[in-house]
Nucleic acid binder design. Structure first.
Lengths: 350, 350
DNA sequence: TGGAGGGCGGAGAGCGCTCTCCCTTTGTGC
DNA sequence: GCACAAAGGGAGAGCGCTCTCCGCCCTCCA
């Protein structure tokens, strides 16, 4: 059986296209990669040959010579040695957030034909693996969703000076690119809205303050309330969990029963707060107005639905991908950060 | 500048290892790939050389000659032209489910060094792309999470006779591999549990009956109740949504106020039912016992927490990966299905 | 009209690996 | 001691692509 007997099996190569177009392999390559000046007429001839043959470049061959794989990794890093069905990781995936990130990243990657390899980095060993993967050219770079303030991965990536972009500012300052939302501005949106509603006694349920998001949302909110002339804002730590939000709300009601406006640093905590308010016979938003943060699925699942501060997740994710591709392309290791504006989504709770 | 001046940049190749080990490239390759009989002594020498040089095989080069990419795609197929933040896709990611699937798949893929490329197939065009991607050797095969009963992707994959494994039986019979849970058995677990609790008036809130999961859970439940001597089980369609569950429960209470046991075909619907029961002053599980299905995050978020039927998602996902790898390895296109046993998770609601 | 220069296309050398072929060595039976 | 077999290891041909040279030809100017 000669190779010609199974033409359906063999995929067309550059050579085939070249033959059809009546030019050399090199020329076809130039056209495909849009390199140098190729006669526009030939250009068309070549593209016609490409579609006639149904040619698609072979990634492996291209990779071999360019030294790029044409794929980047999306690393979900928790570095806490958790099982896949652990509540924490569960909670992470428990949100349109992940899907929105993926959608945003892919929207940029798809047109350039770059693959997105999904990786879970559950412990330090896995983090080491991630770094060596990119050093060894298994992937060209990584976008990182780091879920934990003490996650060692960002530092390792920064030290290795490897193409990487984080979602969210790293917990400690380090030379690494990231995208983030203007948290202070988001907190201000919430503060101004509560003030505009006429809330006189505003409090906040904060997230873990060892996480940048937790600290910034708290400080930003306080600062904005201060600008509104409110010097003191009671705050209770809800640790970014549903039950933490419940507990914080309980304490808040006990110690500040006059409260008529609450800013929760995450929707999940806001949802917990809502449940407690309901148990206490408080009506939302009439007795107490509640504003969340994130615009997660919890915001829609809550009754009443949550007024909340939304991050432009898709845009941010897309920008991550763009930053990473640029970084890989230029082979320079400048770090960049891009900050996005949040948006107040008005629903029933405030 | 000669190439030797930047040794840190150049990654070690087979040739380097061969030189260190004092053998030929071919022998190193044989050892690495565990092929044919190589002298055990040489075996060790080679492996030592590998770790001495820090050699890692170049995927691209290997790919080029083997014709395999060493990566498979995880396709999240909805084929309904939805935006990334669409409630439906949101709902899909709104669950530990996705994370559990990824974890299960990766647990099998990681040891074999196979990459998992994430792909969203949002419309028919994207489905075509998926099929051609695997035909053109962009990926070796696909595991598919198909979210919609009218999704064209499974059919396209079956027709193309491409290595693919579905999560869940396809809506229409077709020659394609899949893993699934024994739905009838799961429904039976729920039925038997409600019966054992002493429920006298059992009803069910079904999912969309055009989906296999919806139809099977309903029929399985009815069948099991019939075996318990209950000839008639009222059923209301909740369409697998929270609000659908609410509406179904409302109707159920109106038309069958004597109901003291409910099997909801998904946790989300059960959660909706719980809210309605609460509004009607019914206590769960004392007045009405509720059993869900899936063991999703909703089961834990509900008050009371849901007794529910759990699928061994990680195991099923791992099996998907295993089936796919086998299929790719053997280049034969036999289709297989593997069915897993569900488990009743006892919590507070029943 | 001759020479220089620039644009355009071809030839061919690899990228790092696998795998087929073939040679060498060692073992075995008569 | 010889023929043969079997097994281990080496040589080398590509896999399909990019990219560096290099040469052709066409244009432009003197």
């Amino acid at each position: 059986m000669t190779s010609d007997q199974t033409p359906a099996q063999r995929l067309p190569t550059l050579e085939d296209v070249a033959q059809v177009a009546g030019v050399s392999r090199a020329t076809v390559s130039r056209v495909i990669n849009n390199i140098r000046n190729v006669d526009p007429q030939l250009h068309k001839v070549v593209w016609d040959a490409v579609s006639a043959t149904g040619y698609v470049p072979n990634r492996a061959a291209r990779s071999l010579v360019t030294g790029r794989t044409g794929s980047i990794a999306l690393v979900v890093s928790e570095a806490e040695n958790r099982a896949a069905d652990d509540p924490f990781l569960g909670r992470f995936f428990s949100d349109p957030f992940f899907g929105r990130v993926v959608g945003g990243v892919l929207s940029v990657l798809r047109p350039s034909g770059v693959h997105l390899a999904l990786t879970l980095a559950g412990d330090e060993e896995a983090c080491v693996k991630v770094v060596s993967d990119v050093r060894q050219g298994q992937v060209d770079g990584v976008v990182v969703l780091s879920l934990h303030p003490h996650d060692p991965l960002p530092r390792m990536l920064a030290d290795a000076a490897v193409p990487a972009v984080l979602y969210g500012r790293p917990a400690a300052p380090m030379p690494i690119s990231y995208v983030d939302v203007a948290t202070y501005q988001g907190a201000k949106l919430a503060a101004d809205h509560l003030a505009a509603r006429g809330c006189q006694h505003v409090a906040t349920i904060s997230g873990s303050v060892d996480m940048p998001a937790g600290a910034d949302r708290l400080h930003g909110f306080r600062e904005a309330m201060a600008k509104q002339g409110v010097a003191y804002v009671p705050s209770y730590d809800g640790g970014f969990t549903h039950s933490g939000g419940e507990r914080a709300m309980e304490r808040l009601l006990a110690e500040h029963p006059e409260t008529d406006g609450v800013f929760a640093a995450s929707d999940v905590m806001a949802q917990g707060a809502l449940a407690v308010l309901r148990d206490h016979g408080k009506s939302v938003p009439d007795d107490v107005a509640v504003v969340g943060f994130d615009d997660s699925s919890a915001a829609l699942a809550s009754r009443p639905q949550l007024t909340t501060v939304r991050q432009p997740v898709e845009d941010m994710a897309a920008e991550m991908a763009r930053l990473l591709l640029t970084r890989i392309d230029q082979r320079a290791n400048r770090t960049t950060s891009v900050i996005f504006d949040p948006e107040l989504i008005l629903r029933a709770s405030a």
